[in-house]
Structures are given as structure tokens and as C-alpha cells.
Design a protein around this nucleic acid. Structure first.
Lengths: 125, 125
DNA sequence: TAAAGTAGTTACTTAGAGGTTAGTTTTATT
DNA sequence: AATAAAACTAACCTCTAAGTAACTACTTTA
């Protein structure tokens, strides 16, 4: 049966694909990674300004997740007012080319996809 | 100011990245794409069996989305009982290498990420 | 003494992704 | 006349990702 060599996919919790892709399949992670990649070092409010439409809460959550996974590092300077700098770790940097290649694909095929999408929606409605 | 060359990211609805990545940042799309890629042609119930823990509803929704975006095609044979075959379009196939490279990265760095994640969780709790 | 700056946290709310179960269609089979 | 088969659809429910708004701590500046 043909399903045998595909059974791998059906596993779930021990699956690297699901565990890892789920994380940066959220709304903000890839964006934050790409922004950090362009600027090397950024403070919380700098990230907040650059991204613009992210809420403080979601920026915090996203940064904590990246930190937890070892993709970004968080350096606190014990000053007043506080200063915190975020940057990508080597692991985080190693992910960037893969995201970029995906983004390049998205860019190149964007119009084709949007055309197909609106044509499909016409047929349905 | 450094935020100038990054302002691109703040746009949103016209952004290919968000529009395209949002689509297959969902729970099932990439998985369905990879399964279709391995088998060339698959019927609804074959996909259902191979993936295992997907519900009928979500398989339908996912396939409709892929079809809408022009990544997969749907061919209905007017028979009873019905037969429907799904396969990747050339556009869908062109996406596969990018997903695969991401998956390879996830696979290679899985243990490192999981280690970092549980270490982080210990510190917090 | 009030405001402003920095990096958040907390509590509350909402939209929507995803899941469950049952039903539909048409014909062949027992 | 009941059941099965394939590929769904519809109604309903649940849970969580994400958003909003207010609040915190500490110090400097107006």
C-alpha cells in the first residue's frame, strides 16, 4: 500500500516539522526574525516602532518565544530607564536564508496566487 | 533613522509575505502539500487515511484553499460512488523545495530547539 | 508635583481556527 | 428494504491566538 512510506507524517508531537513550524507559523515571529536580521541589535521600542502594527503584548510574547527556542537573545542593561537589547543568535541567523527563500517565492508568485484566488472566489459566490 | 529601510514590513494587506505565508502558516496546508508531492495523485479518502489525525472538514477546507491559490488541482470523475483526484499544480510543485529546506532545518535543529525550550521553561516556572 | 521615558505585566474581551457529529447524494449490493 | 461507499456539507461547540486598555517600577526633567 502506498500509505506506508507516508505514515511518518501522521505522528504529531514528536514531529520536528510540526513542533518547529507551528512556532513561527504564528502572526509575528517571522517578521520579528527578519527585522532583527536586518538591524543586528534592537531595543524593545525600536522593534515596536519598526513593526508598527504589533501590540506591546504580542511583541513581548513573540520575543519570549524566540528566546525560549534559542533563536533570539535578550540582554538587559541594569540602567534607569531600563535598556534591553535583542539580537538573533547564530541558530536564529541560520534560519533566515530559509525564510528568505520562501519569501522570495511568495514575492515572485504573489500576483499569480492573488489572481487565482479572486478567480476562485468569483466561481464560488 | 534606521527605521526607514525597514518600513516595508509595516504595510500589511499588500504584503506578499503576509498574504502568502498566512495561508500555509495554518495547521494543515504544508502537510497536505508534502503528501501530494510524494504521491502525485491522491483521492480524498487516501489523503484522509495518510494524514490520519485531520478531520474531514479541515481536509476539505485545506484542499479548497490550496485550490483557490492555484497550488493544487481538483479533478472530479462523474461516477457513482464519486471519485475526486487531487494533485499539485506546477506552482504548487515549485513551492515544495522551499518547504523542504525549511523542514530540513527544523529536523537538524530540532533537539537544540527543544533543549533550549525546556531549559527556558525551567527558568520561568 | 507632575509628566515623561523604558520595558514591560495584568485583566479582560473577541474573532476565528479547528474539531465533532450527523446528514446528504446516488447507485450497487445483499 | 437495508446497507455500504465516496466525498463531501451544515450546525454546533470549544479553545486559543491575538487585541485593548490600564497599570507597574524607577528615575530624571520641566
Amino acid at each position: 500500500m502506498r500509505s506506508e512510506n507516508l505514515k511518518i507524517f501522521a505522528e504529531a508531537e514528536t514531529c520536528p516539522a510540526r513542533n518547529v513550524l507551528d512556532r513561527f507559523g504564528d502572526k509575528w515571529s517571522t517578521l520579528v526574525i527578519l527585522v532583527l536580521n536586518e538591524e543586528e541589535k534592537l531595543r524593545f521600542n525600536e522593534l515596536h516602532k519598526v513593526i508598527g502594527d504589533i501590540s506591546q503584548k504580542m511583541l513581548t510574547v513573540t520575543l519570549r518565544n524566540l528566546e525560549a527556542d534559542g533563536l533570539a537573545s535578550r540582554k538587559v542593561y541594569p540602567e534607569i530607564p531600563p535598556r534591553v537589547e535583542y539580537k538573533l543568535t547564530p541558530l536564529g541567523k541560520s534560519l533566515v536564508p530559509h525564510i528568505s527563500s520562501l519569501l522570495k517565492w511568495a514575492d515572485q508568485n504573489f500576483s499569480s496566487i492573488m489572481a487565482s484566488r479572486s478567480k476562485y472566489n468569483q466561481k464560488v459566490s
